[in-house]
Amino acid sequence: MLDDYFRQYGLIVILSVIAVIIPTSMIAVSWFLSVIKIRPTNPNPVKLSIYECGMETIGPRWNQFNFRYYYFALLFVLFDVETVFLYPWAVHFRKLGLFALIEMGVFIGILVVGWVYAWRKKALEWR
């Protein structure tokens, strides 16, 4: 028989299968109602065009967007990797003691220097 570890994850697999089936079946029922002519489907070119406050869309459909979003993505990568190290540290903190606190202080200190640099360079401002 499988051990406890796989038993727990087996239940999560069952849950995720059901979690995928539910929204899929909701959409499938709606599609089935259109097949048996209960739900209307009368597409026409105007209805299938892209919404833009009543005007026709001008220019490319997939437009460009502000590069500033990349700053936040980069900062996120920086600080989310930090949290990956924080979680195991927090679990075993009672065993590790003062040394771990100083270690983590140095580690976060270095990252905070980067954060202050980003703030001073006005990367956190939205202009």
Binding site: L15, A19, P40, T41, I50
Partner: peptide
């Protein structure tokens, strides 16, 4: 359920249809 379900002509159909499911599954998980 009884409303008409339109997919815009220029839309990326597959991703457009899968996105609601991807949005819903984590809420149950």
């Amino acid at each position: 359920l009884l409303k008409e379900d339109t997919v815009p002509k220029d839309a990326d159909r597959w991703v457009f249809n899968i996105a609601p499911i991807v949005m819903f599954v984590p809420m149950l998980l």
